[in-house]
Design a protein around this nucleic acid. Sequence first.
DNA 1: TAATATATTTTGATTAGTCAAAAACAAATT
DNA 2: AATTTGTTTTTGACTAATCAAAATATATTA
Lengths: 224, 224
Amino acid sequence: MPSSTVENYLKCLYHQELTTEGPVAMGQLASAMGVAPGTATAMVKTLAEAGLVHYEPRGGVSLNPTGRRLALHVLRRHRLIELFLVQVLGLDWSEVHDEAEELEHAISDKVLTRMDALLGHPSVDPHGDPIPTARGSVHTPHLASLADCHTDRPVRIARILDQDPRFLRFLDQSGLTPGSEAVVQNRDADADAITLQTSQSRQITVGTAVAAKILVEPAAGVEN
Amino acid sequence: MPSSTVENYLKCLYHQELTTEGPVAMGQLASAMGVAPGTATAMVKTLAEAGLVHYEPRGGVSLNPTGRRLALHVLRRHRLIELFLVQVLGLDWSEVHDEAEELEHAISDKVLTRMDALLGHPSVDPHGDPIPTARGSVHTPHLASLADCHTDRPVRIARILDQDPRFLRFLDQSGLTPGSEAVVQNRDADADAITLQTSQSRQITVGTAVAAKILVEPAAGVEN
DNA sequence: TAATATATTTTGATTAGTCAAAAACAAATT
DNA sequence: AATTTGTTTTTGACTAATCAAAATATATTA
Ligand SMILES: [Mn+2]
Ligand SMILES: [Mn+2]
Ligand SMILES: [Mn+2]
Ligand SMILES: [Mn+2]
Protein backbone atom coordinates (compact mmCIF):
# COMPACT_ATOMS: atom_id res chain seq x y z
CA MET A 1 0.00 0.00 0.00
CA PRO A 2 1.18 3.53 -0.72
CA SER A 3 3.05 5.32 2.05
CA SER A 4 1.65 8.53 3.45
CA THR A 5 4.43 10.36 1.61
CA VAL A 6 3.27 8.94 -1.70
CA GLU A 7 -0.33 9.85 -0.86
CA ASN A 8 0.67 13.41 -0.07
CA TYR A 9 2.58 13.79 -3.33
CA LEU A 10 -0.35 12.45 -5.34
CA LYS A 11 -2.81 14.74 -3.61
CA CYS A 12 -0.48 17.66 -4.15
CA LEU A 13 -0.13 16.84 -7.85
CA TYR A 14 -3.89 16.66 -8.14
CA HIS A 15 -4.21 20.14 -6.67
CA GLN A 16 -1.46 21.56 -8.84
CA GLU A 17 -3.00 20.11 -12.00
CA LEU A 18 -6.26 21.91 -11.24
CA THR A 19 -4.54 25.24 -11.69
CA THR A 20 -2.00 24.34 -14.34
CA GLU A 21 -2.46 23.45 -17.95
CA GLY A 22 -0.19 20.64 -19.04
CA PRO A 23 2.26 18.76 -16.80
CA VAL A 24 3.39 20.14 -13.46
CA ALA A 25 6.93 21.49 -13.29
CA MET A 26 9.32 20.01 -10.75
CA GLY A 27 9.91 23.37 -9.13
CA GLN A 28 6.20 23.90 -8.68
CA LEU A 29 5.77 20.48 -7.11
CA ALA A 30 8.82 20.94 -4.90
CA SER A 31 7.67 24.26 -3.52
CA ALA A 32 4.09 23.04 -3.06
CA MET A 33 5.42 20.08 -1.11
CA GLY A 34 7.95 22.16 0.77
CA VAL A 35 10.90 20.01 -0.27
CA ALA A 36 14.12 20.63 -2.18
CA PRO A 37 13.91 20.39 -5.99
CA GLY A 38 16.08 17.29 -6.08
CA THR A 39 13.78 15.58 -3.62
CA ALA A 40 10.80 16.16 -5.89
CA THR A 41 12.69 14.77 -8.89
CA ALA A 42 13.66 11.66 -6.94
CA MET A 43 10.16 11.12 -5.63
CA VAL A 44 8.54 11.65 -9.02
CA LYS A 45 10.84 8.98 -10.43
CA THR A 46 9.61 6.49 -7.87
CA LEU A 47 5.99 7.50 -8.52
CA ALA A 48 6.57 6.86 -12.23
CA GLU A 49 8.28 3.59 -11.34
CA ALA A 50 5.20 2.67 -9.31
CA GLY A 51 2.94 3.41 -12.27
CA LEU A 52 1.17 6.42 -10.76
CA VAL A 53 2.38 9.31 -12.90
CA HIS A 54 3.76 10.09 -16.30
CA TYR A 55 7.15 11.72 -16.05
CA GLU A 56 9.15 13.25 -18.84
CA PRO A 57 12.60 14.44 -17.68
CA ARG A 58 12.64 18.23 -17.99
CA GLY A 59 9.10 18.04 -19.24
CA GLY A 60 7.22 17.81 -15.96
CA VAL A 61 4.94 15.27 -14.34
CA SER A 62 1.25 14.42 -14.60
CA LEU A 63 -1.00 11.95 -12.82
CA ASN A 64 -2.03 8.93 -14.84
CA PRO A 65 -5.48 7.37 -14.30
CA THR A 66 -4.22 5.13 -11.49
CA GLY A 67 -2.52 8.00 -9.72
CA ARG A 68 -5.53 10.24 -10.13
CA ARG A 69 -7.85 7.59 -8.72
CA LEU A 70 -5.61 7.23 -5.70
CA ALA A 71 -5.34 11.00 -5.26
CA LEU A 72 -9.10 11.33 -5.31
CA HIS A 73 -9.45 8.58 -2.77
CA VAL A 74 -7.10 10.38 -0.41
CA LEU A 75 -8.94 13.62 -1.04
CA ARG A 76 -12.22 11.91 -0.23
CA ARG A 77 -10.80 10.70 3.06
CA HIS A 78 -9.44 14.14 3.80
CA ARG A 79 -12.70 15.96 3.23
CA LEU A 80 -14.96 13.44 4.91
CA ILE A 81 -12.68 13.54 7.94
CA GLU A 82 -12.83 17.33 8.02
CA LEU A 83 -16.59 17.28 7.97
CA PHE A 84 -16.70 14.54 10.57
CA LEU A 85 -14.46 16.50 12.89
CA VAL A 86 -16.70 19.55 12.58
CA GLN A 87 -20.09 17.86 12.68
CA VAL A 88 -19.51 15.02 15.09
CA LEU A 89 -16.67 16.20 17.29
CA GLY A 90 -17.41 19.90 17.17
CA LEU A 91 -13.97 21.12 16.12
CA ASP A 92 -13.70 24.50 14.49
CA TRP A 93 -13.53 24.59 10.68
CA SER A 94 -10.29 26.53 10.95
CA GLU A 95 -8.44 23.68 12.63
CA VAL A 96 -9.69 20.56 10.86
CA HIS A 97 -7.50 20.81 7.79
CA ASP A 98 -4.29 20.09 9.65
CA GLU A 99 -5.92 17.28 11.62
CA ALA A 100 -7.24 15.69 8.44
CA GLU A 101 -3.82 15.96 6.85
CA GLU A 102 -2.63 13.29 9.28
CA LEU A 103 -5.78 11.23 9.72
CA GLU A 104 -6.30 10.79 5.97
CA HIS A 105 -3.39 8.32 6.02
CA ALA A 106 -4.50 6.36 9.06
CA ILE A 107 -8.16 5.66 8.50
CA SER A 108 -9.40 2.42 6.94
CA ASP A 109 -12.06 2.09 4.29
CA LYS A 110 -14.31 0.48 6.87
CA VAL A 111 -14.16 3.51 9.15
CA LEU A 112 -14.50 5.86 6.20
CA THR A 113 -17.66 4.10 5.07
CA ARG A 114 -19.18 4.45 8.54
CA MET A 115 -18.31 8.11 8.72
CA ASP A 116 -19.82 8.72 5.30
CA ALA A 117 -23.06 7.01 6.35
CA LEU A 118 -23.22 8.80 9.70
CA LEU A 119 -22.83 12.13 7.90
CA GLY A 120 -25.57 11.23 5.42
CA HIS A 121 -23.34 10.89 2.34
CA PRO A 122 -22.42 14.57 2.22
CA SER A 123 -21.26 16.22 -0.99
CA VAL A 124 -19.16 19.05 0.38
CA ASP A 125 -16.77 19.54 3.29
CA PRO A 126 -16.79 22.40 5.85
CA HIS A 127 -15.02 24.69 3.39
CA GLY A 128 -17.45 23.90 0.59
CA ASP A 129 -14.89 21.72 -1.20
CA PRO A 130 -16.61 18.87 -3.07
CA ILE A 131 -16.12 15.38 -1.65
CA PRO A 132 -15.11 12.86 -4.33
CA THR A 133 -17.36 9.81 -4.46
CA ALA A 134 -16.15 6.38 -3.44
CA ARG A 135 -15.84 5.56 -7.14
CA GLY A 136 -13.58 8.54 -7.68
CA SER A 137 -15.68 11.17 -9.39
CA VAL A 138 -15.82 14.79 -8.26
CA HIS A 139 -18.52 17.23 -9.10
CA THR A 140 -17.02 20.71 -9.19
CA PRO A 141 -19.64 23.22 -10.28
CA HIS A 142 -18.27 26.40 -11.75
CA LEU A 143 -18.66 29.15 -9.19
CA ALA A 144 -18.09 32.86 -9.40
CA SER A 145 -16.10 34.58 -6.67
CA LEU A 146 -16.78 37.75 -4.75
CA ALA A 147 -14.22 39.31 -7.09
CA ASP A 148 -16.21 38.64 -10.22
CA CYS A 149 -19.86 37.94 -9.34
CA HIS A 150 -22.78 40.28 -10.00
CA THR A 151 -23.04 43.31 -7.75
CA ASP A 152 -26.14 44.33 -5.84
CA ARG A 153 -27.53 40.83 -5.96
CA PRO A 154 -27.69 38.47 -2.98
CA VAL A 155 -25.25 35.56 -3.21
CA ARG A 156 -24.59 32.64 -0.94
CA ILE A 157 -21.05 31.79 0.11
CA ALA A 158 -20.39 28.34 -1.33
CA ARG A 159 -16.72 27.58 -1.06
CA ILE A 160 -13.50 28.95 0.41
CA LEU A 161 -10.28 28.38 -1.51
CA ASP A 162 -7.86 28.71 1.39
CA GLN A 163 -7.25 26.52 4.43
CA ASP A 164 -5.23 29.00 6.45
CA PRO A 165 -6.63 28.97 10.02
CA ARG A 166 -6.14 32.71 10.49
CA PHE A 167 -8.02 33.48 7.29
CA LEU A 168 -10.83 31.07 8.17
CA ARG A 169 -11.23 32.60 11.60
CA PHE A 170 -11.36 36.02 10.00
CA LEU A 171 -14.16 34.84 7.71
CA ASP A 172 -15.95 33.44 10.76
CA GLN A 173 -15.72 36.81 12.50
CA SER A 174 -16.96 38.53 9.37
CA GLY A 175 -19.94 36.25 8.88
CA LEU A 176 -18.62 34.95 5.58
CA THR A 177 -18.89 31.21 6.17
CA PRO A 178 -20.33 28.78 3.61
CA GLY A 179 -24.10 28.99 3.63
CA SER A 180 -24.31 32.61 4.71
CA GLU A 181 -25.40 35.32 2.31
CA ALA A 182 -23.93 38.61 1.19
CA VAL A 183 -24.28 41.32 -1.44
CA VAL A 184 -21.39 42.94 -3.27
CA GLN A 185 -22.05 46.66 -3.12
CA ASN A 186 -19.04 48.12 -4.80
CA ARG A 187 -15.82 47.23 -6.58
CA ASP A 188 -13.03 49.74 -6.79
CA ALA A 189 -10.37 48.36 -9.11
CA ASP A 190 -7.97 51.23 -8.40
CA ALA A 191 -8.20 50.72 -4.67
CA ASP A 192 -8.22 46.93 -5.07
CA ALA A 193 -11.21 47.01 -2.74
CA ILE A 194 -14.51 45.18 -2.72
CA THR A 195 -17.22 46.28 -0.35
CA LEU A 196 -19.98 43.95 0.68
CA GLN A 197 -22.94 43.73 2.96
CA THR A 198 -23.28 40.57 5.04
CA SER A 199 -26.52 38.94 6.11
CA GLN A 200 -26.00 40.47 9.56
CA SER A 201 -26.09 43.85 7.77
CA ARG A 202 -22.46 44.47 8.42
CA GLN A 203 -20.41 46.23 5.84
CA ILE A 204 -17.04 44.69 5.04
CA THR A 205 -14.31 45.70 2.67
CA VAL A 206 -11.76 43.23 1.39
CA GLY A 207 -9.02 43.19 -1.24
CA THR A 208 -9.35 41.40 -4.56
CA ALA A 209 -6.97 38.62 -3.51
CA VAL A 210 -9.25 37.74 -0.61
CA ALA A 211 -12.47 38.17 -2.60
CA ALA A 212 -11.16 35.79 -5.25
CA LYS A 213 -10.85 33.06 -2.62
CA ILE A 214 -14.51 33.29 -1.66
CA LEU A 215 -16.70 31.46 -4.17
CA VAL A 216 -20.42 32.14 -4.32
CA GLU A 217 -23.61 31.01 -5.97
CA PRO A 218 -26.86 32.90 -6.49
CA ALA A 219 -28.76 33.05 -3.20
CA ALA A 220 -31.75 30.71 -2.92
CA GLY A 221 -34.84 31.92 -4.74
CA VAL A 222 -32.88 34.29 -6.90
CA GLU A 223 -32.84 33.65 -10.62
CA ASN A 224 -29.50 34.14 -12.26
CA MET B 1 7.62 14.37 18.90
CA PRO B 2 8.07 10.61 19.17
CA SER B 3 7.66 8.60 15.97
CA SER B 4 4.92 6.00 15.81
CA THR B 5 7.65 3.37 16.04
CA VAL B 6 8.85 4.81 19.32
CA GLU B 7 5.26 4.94 20.58
CA ASN B 8 4.72 1.30 19.68
CA TYR B 9 7.89 0.20 21.46
CA LEU B 10 6.95 2.11 24.60
CA LYS B 11 3.44 0.69 24.62
CA CYS B 12 4.85 -2.78 24.09
CA LEU B 13 7.31 -2.34 26.96
CA TYR B 14 4.48 -1.20 29.19
CA HIS B 15 2.52 -4.35 28.40
CA GLN B 16 5.52 -6.60 28.88
CA GLU B 17 6.34 -5.03 32.22
CA LEU B 18 2.85 -5.84 33.48
CA THR B 19 3.59 -9.54 33.22
CA THR B 20 7.29 -9.53 34.03
CA GLU B 21 9.09 -8.80 37.25
CA GLY B 22 12.23 -6.80 36.74
CA PRO B 23 13.49 -5.49 33.41
CA VAL B 24 12.25 -6.86 30.10
CA ALA B 25 14.66 -9.09 28.19
CA MET B 26 15.63 -8.09 24.65
CA GLY B 27 14.37 -11.37 23.24
CA GLN B 28 10.99 -10.86 24.87
CA LEU B 29 10.71 -7.33 23.50
CA ALA B 30 11.88 -8.44 20.06
CA SER B 31 9.34 -11.22 19.77
CA ALA B 32 6.53 -9.07 21.20
CA MET B 33 7.34 -6.44 18.59
CA GLY B 34 7.84 -8.98 15.84
CA VAL B 35 11.33 -7.75 14.98
CA ALA B 36 14.78 -9.35 14.91
CA PRO B 37 16.70 -9.32 18.21
CA GLY B 38 19.30 -6.93 16.90
CA THR B 39 16.60 -4.49 15.90
CA ALA B 40 15.25 -4.43 19.44
CA THR B 41 18.72 -3.82 20.85
CA ALA B 42 19.29 -0.94 18.45
CA MET B 43 15.92 0.60 19.16
CA VAL B 44 16.28 0.27 22.92
CA LYS B 45 19.57 2.13 22.69
CA THR B 46 17.88 5.03 20.97
CA LEU B 47 15.05 4.96 23.52
CA ALA B 48 17.66 5.15 26.28
CA GLU B 49 19.41 7.92 24.38
CA ALA B 50 16.08 9.78 24.22
CA GLY B 51 15.64 9.44 27.98
CA LEU B 52 12.64 7.14 27.89
CA VAL B 53 13.99 3.87 29.28
CA HIS B 54 16.70 2.49 31.49
CA TYR B 55 18.87 0.04 29.60
CA GLU B 56 21.56 -2.18 31.03
CA PRO B 57 23.43 -4.11 28.32
CA ARG B 58 22.66 -7.80 28.82
CA GLY B 59 20.50 -6.78 31.75
CA GLY B 60 17.31 -5.83 29.97
CA VAL B 61 15.25 -2.66 29.63
CA SER B 62 12.65 -0.87 31.72
CA LEU B 63 10.53 2.22 31.22
CA ASN B 64 11.55 5.24 33.23
CA PRO B 65 8.91 7.71 34.48
CA THR B 66 9.02 9.73 31.25
CA GLY B 67 8.69 6.65 29.08
CA ARG B 68 5.89 5.26 31.21
CA ARG B 69 3.97 8.53 31.04
CA LEU B 70 4.27 8.51 27.26
CA ALA B 71 3.27 4.85 27.05
CA LEU B 72 0.17 5.52 29.11
CA HIS B 73 -0.73 8.44 26.92
CA VAL B 74 -0.57 6.26 23.83
CA LEU B 75 -2.57 3.59 25.61
CA ARG B 76 -5.18 6.17 26.53
CA ARG B 77 -5.49 7.20 22.91
CA HIS B 78 -5.69 3.58 21.82
CA ARG B 79 -8.48 2.66 24.18
CA LEU B 80 -10.53 5.81 23.75
CA ILE B 81 -10.34 5.33 20.00
CA GLU B 82 -11.50 1.73 20.33
CA LEU B 83 -14.50 2.78 22.36
CA PHE B 84 -15.24 5.64 19.99
CA LEU B 85 -15.19 3.34 17.00
CA VAL B 86 -17.63 0.98 18.69
CA GLN B 87 -19.95 3.52 20.28
CA VAL B 88 -20.04 6.28 17.71
CA LEU B 89 -19.22 4.56 14.44
CA GLY B 90 -20.74 1.18 15.23
CA LEU B 91 -17.73 -0.97 14.39
CA ASP B 92 -17.53 -4.43 15.90
CA TRP B 93 -15.39 -4.85 19.03
CA SER B 94 -13.43 -7.54 17.22
CA GLU B 95 -12.08 -5.17 14.60
CA VAL B 96 -11.34 -1.99 16.52
CA HIS B 97 -8.00 -3.04 17.97
CA ASP B 98 -6.22 -3.05 14.62
CA GLU B 99 -7.83 0.22 13.60
CA ALA B 100 -6.79 1.85 16.86
CA GLU B 101 -3.26 0.57 16.43
CA GLU B 102 -2.90 3.00 13.52
CA LEU B 103 -5.12 5.85 14.65
CA GLU B 104 -3.42 6.12 18.06
CA HIS B 105 -0.46 7.74 16.28
CA ALA B 106 -2.44 10.15 14.13
CA ILE B 107 -4.91 11.75 16.51
CA SER B 108 -4.23 15.06 18.23
CA ASP B 109 -4.87 15.89 21.85
CA LYS B 110 -7.62 18.23 20.75
CA VAL B 111 -9.51 15.46 18.98
CA LEU B 112 -8.85 13.08 21.84
CA THR B 113 -10.32 15.51 24.32
CA ARG B 114 -13.49 15.84 22.22
CA MET B 115 -13.86 12.10 21.90
CA ASP B 116 -13.41 11.66 25.63
CA ALA B 117 -16.12 14.24 26.34
CA LEU B 118 -18.50 12.82 23.73
CA LEU B 119 -18.11 9.38 25.31
CA GLY B 120 -18.75 10.78 28.78
CA HIS B 121 -15.24 10.29 30.18
CA PRO B 122 -15.40 6.51 30.08
CA SER B 123 -13.22 4.37 32.32
CA VAL B 124 -12.99 1.19 30.27
CA ASP B 125 -12.73 0.32 26.58
CA PRO B 126 -14.87 -2.23 24.66
CA HIS B 127 -12.75 -5.10 25.98
CA GLY B 128 -12.99 -3.91 29.57
CA ASP B 129 -9.42 -2.62 29.55
CA PRO B 130 -9.05 0.42 31.80
CA ILE B 131 -8.49 3.76 30.07
CA PRO B 132 -5.59 5.72 31.58
CA THR B 133 -6.53 9.23 32.65
CA ALA B 134 -5.20 12.28 30.88
CA ARG B 135 -2.78 12.71 33.79
CA GLY B 136 -1.45 9.22 33.28
CA SER B 137 -2.92 7.11 36.04
CA VAL B 138 -4.58 3.76 35.44
CA HIS B 139 -6.97 2.08 37.79
CA THR B 140 -6.62 -1.67 37.33
CA PRO B 141 -8.82 -3.47 39.85
CA HIS B 142 -7.76 -6.98 40.66
CA LEU B 143 -10.17 -9.32 38.91
CA ALA B 144 -10.57 -13.08 39.09
CA SER B 145 -10.86 -15.03 35.86
CA LEU B 146 -13.28 -17.75 34.87
CA ALA B 147 -10.39 -20.10 35.60
CA ASP B 148 -10.15 -19.17 39.26
CA CYS B 149 -13.36 -17.45 40.40
CA HIS B 150 -15.96 -18.92 42.71
CA THR B 151 -18.17 -21.62 41.23
CA ASP B 152 -21.98 -21.61 41.33
CA ARG B 153 -22.08 -17.89 41.85
CA PRO B 154 -23.18 -15.36 39.24
CA VAL B 155 -20.35 -13.27 37.88
CA ARG B 156 -20.24 -10.47 35.37
CA ILE B 157 -17.73 -10.52 32.54
CA ALA B 158 -15.54 -7.48 33.12
CA ARG B 159 -12.51 -7.74 30.87
CA ILE B 160 -11.07 -9.79 28.04
CA LEU B 161 -7.30 -10.26 27.90
CA ASP B 162 -6.99 -11.01 24.21
CA GLN B 163 -7.54 -8.84 21.14
CA ASP B 164 -7.64 -11.62 18.56
CA PRO B 165 -10.65 -10.95 16.29
CA ARG B 166 -11.49 -14.64 15.94
CA PHE B 167 -11.52 -15.10 19.69
CA LEU B 168 -13.59 -11.98 20.24
CA ARG B 169 -16.17 -13.10 17.68
CA PHE B 170 -16.32 -16.47 19.39
CA LEU B 171 -17.03 -14.73 22.70
CA ASP B 172 -19.73 -12.69 20.98
CA GLN B 173 -21.35 -15.84 19.67
CA SER B 174 -21.13 -17.41 23.11
CA GLY B 175 -22.67 -14.45 24.92
CA LEU B 176 -19.51 -13.80 26.88
CA THR B 177 -19.06 -10.10 26.23
CA PRO B 178 -18.19 -7.57 28.93
CA GLY B 179 -21.29 -6.77 30.94
CA SER B 180 -23.00 -10.11 30.44
CA GLU B 181 -23.34 -12.59 33.28
CA ALA B 182 -22.41 -16.22 33.72
CA VAL B 183 -22.01 -18.92 36.36
CA VAL B 184 -19.12 -21.38 36.52
CA GLN B 185 -20.71 -24.75 37.06
CA ASN B 186 -17.78 -27.09 36.97
CA ARG B 187 -14.02 -27.21 36.69
CA ASP B 188 -12.31 -30.39 35.60
CA ALA B 189 -8.57 -29.96 36.01
CA ASP B 190 -7.78 -33.29 34.39
CA ALA B 191 -9.83 -32.48 31.33
CA ASP B 192 -8.63 -28.86 31.37
CA ALA B 193 -12.30 -27.98 31.00
CA ILE B 194 -14.47 -25.33 32.58
CA THR B 195 -18.21 -25.48 32.10
CA LEU B 196 -20.37 -22.44 32.50
CA GLN B 197 -23.91 -21.26 32.12
CA THR B 198 -24.45 -17.99 30.29
CA SER B 199 -27.19 -15.50 31.00
CA GLN B 200 -29.03 -16.84 27.96
CA SER B 201 -29.05 -20.21 29.77
CA ARG B 202 -26.64 -21.69 27.33
CA GLN B 203 -24.05 -24.12 28.56
CA ILE B 204 -20.52 -23.60 27.32
CA THR B 205 -17.32 -25.50 27.96
CA VAL B 206 -13.93 -23.89 27.47
CA GLY B 207 -10.33 -24.81 28.24
CA THR B 208 -8.36 -23.22 31.06
CA ALA B 209 -6.29 -21.13 28.69
CA VAL B 210 -9.42 -19.46 27.38
CA ALA B 211 -11.07 -19.17 30.80
CA ALA B 212 -7.98 -17.41 32.13
CA LYS B 213 -8.40 -14.68 29.54
CA ILE B 214 -11.92 -13.85 30.69
CA LEU B 215 -11.86 -11.70 33.81
CA VAL B 216 -14.95 -11.37 35.97
CA GLU B 217 -16.33 -9.55 38.97
CA PRO B 218 -19.18 -10.51 41.30
CA ALA B 219 -22.49 -9.91 39.56
CA ALA B 220 -24.42 -6.85 40.72
CA GLY B 221 -26.31 -7.34 43.95
CA VAL B 222 -24.20 -10.31 44.96
CA GLU B 223 -22.08 -9.95 48.06
CA ASN B 224 -18.63 -11.41 47.74
C1' DT C 1 36.00 -26.94 35.36
C1' DA C 2 35.23 -27.42 30.68
C1' DA C 3 31.94 -27.83 27.07
C1' DT C 4 27.71 -26.60 25.26
C1' DA C 5 23.58 -24.05 24.61
C1' DT C 6 21.17 -19.70 24.63
C1' DA C 7 20.67 -14.83 24.56
C1' DT C 8 22.48 -10.53 23.23
C1' DT C 9 25.17 -7.40 20.75
C1' DT C 10 27.75 -6.03 16.80
C1' DT C 11 28.56 -5.61 12.00
C1' DG C 12 27.45 -4.78 7.38
C1' DA C 13 23.52 -4.02 4.29
C1' DT C 14 19.07 -2.29 2.70
C1' DT C 15 15.03 0.90 1.95
C1' DA C 16 12.42 5.31 2.12
C1' DG C 17 12.79 9.94 2.28
C1' DT C 18 15.30 13.84 2.68
C1' DC C 19 19.06 17.95 1.85
C1' DA C 20 23.01 20.71 -0.09
C1' DA C 21 25.59 21.63 -3.62
C1' DA C 22 27.53 20.55 -8.14
C1' DA C 23 26.51 19.59 -12.91
C1' DA C 24 23.72 19.76 -16.89
C1' DC C 25 20.27 21.61 -19.63
C1' DA C 26 17.03 25.00 -21.73
C1' DA C 27 15.49 29.56 -22.39
C1' DA C 28 16.08 34.30 -22.71
C1' DT C 29 19.01 38.20 -23.55
C1' DT C 30 22.43 40.62 -25.46
C1' DA D 1 25.93 33.26 -31.85
C1' DA D 2 27.40 33.74 -27.33
C1' DT D 3 26.39 34.61 -22.74
C1' DT D 4 23.67 34.82 -18.80
C1' DT D 5 19.88 33.16 -16.05
C1' DG D 6 16.82 29.92 -14.19
C1' DT D 7 15.34 25.21 -13.75
C1' DT D 8 16.13 20.43 -13.34
C1' DT D 9 18.88 16.54 -12.50
C1' DT D 10 22.66 14.24 -10.43
C1' DT D 11 25.77 13.21 -6.79
C1' DG D 12 27.10 12.33 -2.22
C1' DA D 13 25.56 12.29 2.34
C1' DC D 14 22.37 11.64 6.22
C1' DT D 15 18.56 9.56 9.45
C1' DA D 16 15.20 6.09 10.96
C1' DA D 17 14.09 1.51 10.96
C1' DT D 18 14.90 -2.75 9.66
C1' DC D 19 17.33 -7.75 8.65
C1' DA D 20 20.85 -11.58 8.42
C1' DA D 21 24.56 -13.43 10.13
C1' DA D 22 28.81 -13.21 12.80
C1' DA D 23 30.79 -12.33 17.30
C1' DT D 24 30.45 -12.23 22.10
C1' DA D 25 28.81 -12.89 26.67
C1' DT D 26 26.29 -15.57 30.01
C1' DA D 27 24.06 -19.75 31.77
C1' DT D 28 23.53 -24.50 31.92
C1' DT D 29 25.06 -28.98 31.89
C1' DA D 30 28.03 -32.54 32.11
MN1 LIG E 1 -1.58 14.21 4.45
MN1 LIG F 1 -11.52 21.32 3.18
MN1 LIG G 1 0.29 1.45 17.14
MN1 LIG H 1 -8.93 -2.82 24.01
